[in-house]
Design a protein around this nucleic acid. Structure first.
Length: 886
RNA sequence: GGGCGGAUAGCUCAGUUGGGAGAGCGCCACGUUUACACCGUGGAUGUCACAGGUUCAAGUCCUGUUCCGCCUACCA
């Protein structure tokens, strides 16, 4: 392998596709249904089949890939189950739009043909996002890819529906639900987004039927008065005590409705009297049930006033609102209007204002399921990380309301309920019945509705493993080990999977849940198309490589913090990837004459540098493993950055250059062996984060192993621990840095070699420094680094530095710049003096001496002595300078 | 209304049982040393939001305040 073949800069583009294909060809991501190895499984949060990879996906899947690759390298039987969900409303919207371009409405072609079109669309575009995950490097077991509308998963959906129904946990009824007039379907409470909007509060006069006076109500939705069936006041309200039970005339409709009393009414708000529209307001609906009020539906599914709206029939509700207000004014019922802000609910899919509407829907009774789901987390069967999200999870489950699962769209799992129009029987079954079991009628009619997409994704952790069949995969991988997802879908998905998993499997769907934050732009704003601050992950991968992109995401993933992303940051971490690449190039250049195991090396062949870097590596291995076990992605990546760049590259590679270029063959061999070892271990440590570049390098440095993907993840080794080397090297590093510091401040260019003398009364330290003299000379650029036996020999007219217990005299050649040196020494002296003051304050405090631990006191005392000595040296040096100046 | 999170260097953020304020980027100076200018060496920069309290000792623990962000809620 010649160095000429290696680019000076790392070029990700050629490399990434090559290795991804190789991994697939070698089937490295495949999980075993049954195995001797311990299982570790993650199910992907299935992206919408209509989706395109955005930053949120990129973060979510990068984190999953890091952990799954880590566990795979640790020897687990790992499964990362991929797939997509059918995204009922979103997908239907997309295909409807496609049809609209051809001038077709779905009703023109009918349900069956429409579904066919959706499947065609899915064939063509459905795989896009999964292919994008491959670009990111995701090591999913693609042979197991699932789709929520697959036959197997659909069967699971019907099975669960039937079980829930038979257990009395699913019911149908006329209730008020959130209705999206554009999507033309009911949606669940979670699918409504509230936004505060500026509007008005209208005051309207409702005259008493007996002609004696009137009651004034306040409303934000005057048009709904067409469906009013009562006016309500608080029973405690003195103003209205006498009118409870009286009738009022509903203006415009000319109809009598009662005045009722209900605790729900706040006396202080508005006039204390509220118009009640059970068909268009959730609170009014509940009140209507309490008081047995009529429910008059005044709108159709498109939010257009229907025949119950009298003269307003045919108007959409916003036009109707204007007309109602106009007519109220004309007819003398209008009192006033005030500016007012309140929350308006919008459909999370299409942002249309949601109408509360009464209609016949299917619901899941969730109270009991929610209790079980809560208990599982309380008992620790599932652990939520970071734990602060537990409170959110508990709170939501505690206040949960029944889940509306029916949707009035065509794309989705059709509700497995059939009606017999002959005898009125309702049949709930997994398989379509051929005839009515009651009367034998063969002409059965299936319920028109489909299920909420989240109903099927709630089953994802076991339906993807083959349930209701009792498969090996299910036995091996359920409960899954870990779920990684964004906190924003804790209710949509996490809580529902918990409920479904516990209900169906009698065990939690996952042992742990790691919730990550959102990706925002560099200013902390949410990324959105309308703001134009979107960063396209694919463009970033294309430009900087998947590795740089992934590393950036991981580095910024601190627990409980949003990830603020900018292109400049990704570019920054590309530099890191390039640094790794060049460390590799350097190694290749210096390993060409090295053959492994070509003879025994003795312990003394290994230099201090060799011993030191192995010790550092070992500590890094420890830290990275610990961080990954606790999902501290930022700690793991920062530590690896620090080690690779600032320990391996900045120090070790520089330290061994003289050995590699030198004549001592055993020393050189030891350095080469160490270099190769450290490089291999470092690549393995880095691989889960940056899979591509590490594989590219691994293939050239490994001992004919198949792939780094299945290499063994480094674990700390006793034999690498070397506290002595670490301690020794700390002294040498400090001396080197001190000399470099003086060189820098005095503007001595690196090419100009300097002469340095040193003095140290401590014999142990003397020994260490003497042993490391060659390192100091090489790393600080010195011609000479000689020891002074006696302090009296100290030279004059030199710069003086203090490196711990070691005093260094730097010969600057020619005349020393006295002013500059003076300034430098004075500054250091000032700093030391401040430190001395702080330390002595402590040591003079009897409370400190008596109450602080002996260890701490000792530390402070040592610190004091060291600082004192340093200051003495500095004062000496300053004195010498003044003497020179005279 | 309820809940949660945040406030540390110019920017973005680490800081795990309380015991010498850190990193990355940016900035300044010097430097083309045959791995890397996507580089090297050195340097500067902080009332750790504010006010109290506990403690020998507080960025770290407690209480309160201010300002930001998010989630949640049925007040017309």
């Amino acid at each position: 392998m010649g160095i000429d073949e290696l680019n000076k800069s790392y070029e990700p583009r050629d490399v990434e596709e090559k290795w991804y294909q190789d991994w697939i060809d070698k089937s490295l991501f495949k999980a075993e249904d049954s195995s001797e190895k311990k299982p570790f499984s993650i199910v992907i949060p299935p992206p919408n089949v209509t989706g395109m990879l955005h930053m949120g996906h990129a973060l979510n899947n990068t984190l999953q890939d890091i952990l799954i690759r880590y566990k795979r390298m640790q020897g687990f039987n790992t499964l990362w189950m991929p797939g997509t969900d059918h995204a009922g409303i979103a997908t239907q919207n997309v295909v409807e739009q496609e049809l609209a371009r051809e001038g077709i409405h779905r009703h023109d072609i009918g349900r069956e043909k429409f579904i066919e079109r959706v499947w065609q669309w899915r064939e063509k575009y459905g795989g896009i996002i999964l292919n994008q995950l491959k670009k990111l490097g995701c090591s999913c077991d693609w042979s197991r890819e699932r789709f929520t509308m697959d036959e197997g998963l659909s069967r699971a959906v019907r099975e669960v529906f039937v079980r829930l129904y038979n257990d009395g946990l699913i019911y149908q009824g006329d209730y008020i639900v959130n209705w999206c007039p554009r999507c033309h379907t009911a949606i669940s409470d979670l699918e409504v987004e509230y936004e505060t909007e500026a509007t008005h509060l209208w005051y309207i006069r409702y005259p008493y039927a007996d002609g004696k006076g009137e009651i004034v109500v306040a409303t934000t939705r005057p048009e709904t008065m067409l469906g009013d069936t009562a006016v309500a006041v608080n029973p405690e309200d003195e103003r209205y005590k006498d009118v409870i039970g009286k009738k009022v005339i509903l203006p415009l409709m000319n109809k009598e409705i009662p005045v009722i009393a209900d605790d729900y009414i706040t006396k202080e708000f508005g006039t204390g009297a509220v118009k009640i529209t059970p068909s268009a307001d959730p609170n009014d609906f509940v009140m209507a049930q309490r008081h047995n009020l009529d429910i008059v539906v005044i709108m159709d599914g498109r939010a257009v006033i229907n025949e119950n709206g009298g003269r307003y029939q045919g108007q959409d509700c916003y036009t109707c609102r204007m007309n109602v207000v106009e007519d109220l004014k004309k007819e003398g019922y209008y009192v006033k209007e005030e500016p007012y802000t309140h929350n308006v609910g919008r459909c999370y899919r299409c942002k249309t204002i949601v109408e509360p509407m009464v209609s016949k829907q299917w619901f899941v009774k969730v109270k009991g399921l929610a209790k079980t789901a809560t208990a599982a987390v309380v008992k620790g069967e599932t652990k939520i990380v970071p734990s602060m999200w537990e409170a959110t999870y508990f709170d939501w489950l505690e206040n949960i309301r029944d889940w509306c699962i029916s949707r009035q769209i065509w794309w989705g799992h059709r509700i497995p309920v059939w009606y017999c129009d002959e005898c009125g029987k309702i049949i709930v079954a997994v398989e379509e019945p051929e005839k009515c079991p009651g009367c034998g009628n063969a002409a059965l009619r299936q319920d028109e509705d489909v299920l909420d997409t989240w109903f099927s994704s709630g089953l994802w952790p076991f339906s993807t493993l083959g349930w209701p069949e009792e498969t090996d995969a299910l036995r091996t991988f359920y409960p899954t080990s870990l779920l990684i997802t964004g906190f924003d879908i804790i209710f949509f998905w996490v809580a529902r999977m918990m409920m479904m998993g516990l209900y169906v499997m009698k065990d939690v769907p996952f042992r742990r849940v790691y919730l990550h934050a959102l990706v925002r732009d560099e200013k902390g704003d949410k990324m959105s198309k309308s703001k134009g601050n979107i960063i396209d992950p694919l463009k970033m991968i294309d430009k900087y490589g998947a590795d740089a992109f992934r590393y950036t995401l991981a580095v910024f993933t601190a627990q409980g913090r949003d990830v603020k992303m900018s292109e400049a940051r990704i570019e920054g971490y590309r530099h890191f990837i390039n640094k790794i690449w060049n460390a590799f190039r350097f190694s290749m250049m210096n390993l060409s004459d090295y053959t492994e195991n070509s003879g025994e090396l003795k312990p003394e062949d290994y230099s201090l540098a060799d011993r030191w870097i192995k010790d550092r590596l070992n500590r890094t291995v420890d830290d990275v493993n610990a961080a990954l076990e606790e999902y501290r992605f930022n700690d793991a990546t920062s530590r690896l950055y620090q080690f690779t760049w600032h320990e391996l590259c900045d120090w070790y590679l520089e330290l061994i250059k003289p050995v590699l270029y030198g004549e001592n063959t055993n020393r050189k061999k030891a350095a080469q062996e160490t270099l190769l070892l450290v490089l291999r271990e470092t690549m393995k440590l880095l691989h889960p984060f940056i899979p591509f570049v590490t594989e590219e390098i691994w293939q050239k440095i490994s001992d004919n192993e198949k792939s780094i993907v299945i290499s063994e993840y480094p674990a700390a080794k006793e034999e690498w621990v070397d506290g002595e080397a670490d301690l020794m090297f700390a002294y040498l590093k400090e001396i080197i840095t001190t000399v470099r510091n003086i060189r820098g401040i005095m503007h001595v260019p690196p090419a100009k070699k300097m002469k340095v003398h040193w003095f140290c009364p401590d014999e142990a330290v003397q020994h260490i420094v003497s042993t490391g003299t060659h390192y100091i000379k090489d790393m600080a650029g010195l011609t000479e680094f000689s020891h002074l036996a006696e302090k009296e020999e100290e030279p004059k007219g030199v710069a003086v530095g203090v490196a711990g217990p070691v005093k260094v005299y730097v010969f600057l050649g020619g005349m020393i710049d006295i002013e500059k040196e003076k300034a430098r020494l004075q500054k250091e002296h000032a700093k030391t003096s401040t430190d001395i003051k702080r330390v002595s304050r402590k040591l003079e405090n009897p409370d400190f001496l008596s109450k602080a631990s002996g260890e701490v006191v000792q530390k402070e005392e040592a610190k004091y002595a060291e600082l004192k000595e340093r200051n003495r040296i500095l004062i000496d040096a300053l004195g010498n300078l003044s003497a020179m100046a005279e």
